[in-house]
Simulated scan of single mutants.
Amino acid sequence: MAQISASVVKELRDRTSAGMMDCKKALEACNCDPEKAIAWLREKGLAKAAKKAGRSTSEGVIGSYIHSNGKIAVLVEVKCETDFVARGEKFQEFARNVAMQIAAANPICVSSEQVPADVLAKERDIYVAQTKAEGKPDNIIDKIVDGRVKKYYKEVCLLEQPYIKDDKLTVQTLLNDLVATLGENIQIGRFVRMQLGEDAAE
């Protein structure tokens, strides 16, 4: 295999924020293909995130964002394991970006598990009625409805939403990447989004 130049490793590091050695390993594993190396690093990040998911998160910050028109404001709780990480630039930037995401995309909850049962039941009823009205056969209605529920989750669940600064990523992917980079369990907790003239939603 050809020698991997330091400039290629640095470019991958700039794009992913992963460590230099991790970037080199990714490039070696993917025959120096940067796009495949990014996917490889993301998969490793997902594995790291899963391993760290049970660890206590007693530190963190309250991220905030106020829209330029002064009519939308967001507060979001982002938790981590240590005060050292909480004070770091990457963690603080992530908290700001998540607050901005909430302001722009208006999720109703953090994850699909948090969608209220009555809200989900109402959505499913609507999708069933729509699917029947479209004349779909009874034996595939459930499958179609399940697909529409997944699409609904992408609209209303923060972690499943496409990231507003790069819609090829989800907020969950962004979170996994940060866990892999900082080496701590990181969780998005409560949030509140206020819009002038509307009730606040948490």
Score class of each variant (00 low, 15 high):
Asn69Glu: 15
Arg148Gly: 07
Thr16Lys: 11
Val74Asn: 02
Gly189Trp: 14
Leu175Gly: 01
Lys151Gln: 14
Phe91Ser: 03
Thr16His: 07
Glu35Lys: 15
Ala26Pro: 09
Val78Phe: 14
Asp138Ile: 04
Val61Ile: 13
Val76Arg: 03
Thr173His: 15
Ile144Cys: 06
Ala86Pro: 06
Gln187Asp: 00
Ala86Gln: 07
Tyr127Cys: 14
Glu113Gly: 07
Thr131Ala: 11
Leu196Ala: 12
Val149Ser: 10
Gly147Asn: 12
Gln195Asp: 09
Gly135Ile: 00
Phe94Pro: 02
Pro116Arg: 07
Gly135Val: 06
Ala201Cys: 13
Ile164Trp: 09
Ile126Asp: 11
Leu41Ala: 05
Ser58Cys: 00
Thr16Leu: 00
Val171Ser: 05
Ala99Arg: 00
Leu182Met: 13
Glu202Trp: 14
Val110Asp: 00
Asp22Ala: 15
Phe191Cys: 04
Asp142Ala: 12
Met20Trp: 07
Val9Ser: 00
Arg13Ile: 00
Asp14Tyr: 14
Gly189Ser: 01
Ala29Phe: 11
Lys44Arg: 12
Asn176Arg: 03
Gln92Leu: 14
Tyr153Lys: 08
Ile108Met: 09
Lys122Ile: 03
Lys24Phe: 11
Tyr65Lys: 03
Phe91Trp: 11
Ile102Lys: 05
Ala99Trp: 05
Arg96Asp: 05
Lys10Pro: 06
Lys48His: 10
Leu27Tyr: 10
Asn185Lys: 06
Val128Tyr: 06
Thr131Leu: 05
Glu184Gln: 08
Glu11Ile: 06
Lys25Asp: 04
Lys10Ala: 00
Gln3Ala: 13
Gln92Glu: 13
Leu41Asp: 00
Lys143Met: 13
Gly189Thr: 05
Glu123Arg: 12
Cys80Phe: 11
Leu75Tyr: 13
Gly63Lys: 07
Gly45Met: 01
Ser68Glu: 15
Val128Asn: 06
Asp142Thr: 08
Cys109Met: 10
Pro107Val: 11
Leu196Pro: 03
Glu184Tyr: 08
Thr16Pro: 05
Phe94Gly: 01
Ile188Pro: 06
Pro107Trp: 08
Asp142Trp: 06
Gly135Ser: 01
Leu12Trp: 09
Val85Ala: 05
Ile126Tyr: 07
Asn185Ala: 10
Asp142Gly: 10
Ser111His: 01
Leu41His: 01
Gly88Trp: 04
Phe91Ala: 06
Ala49His: 12
Ile38Met: 14
Ala201Leu: 15
Met20Asn: 07
Gln101Arg: 08
Lys90Leu: 04
Glu113His: 09
Gln101Tyr: 02
Arg124His: 07
Ala53Phe: 10
Glu43Thr: 11
Leu159Ala: 03
Val119Asn: 01
Thr57Lys: 02
Ala29Leu: 09
Arg96Asn: 13
Ala53His: 08
Glu28Met: 13
Ala105Met: 14
Ser68Ile: 14
Met100Ala: 01
Asn69Ala: 12
Ala121Trp: 02
His67Lys: 12
Lys90Tyr: 02
Phe84Met: 07
Gln130Pro: 05
Gly19Ile: 11
Ile140Glu: 02
Asn185Trp: 01
Arg42Trp: 03
Cys32Ile: 14
Asp146Leu: 10
Ile72Phe: 07
Gln92Val: 11
Asp33Met: 12
Thr82Ile: 06
Cys80Gln: 02
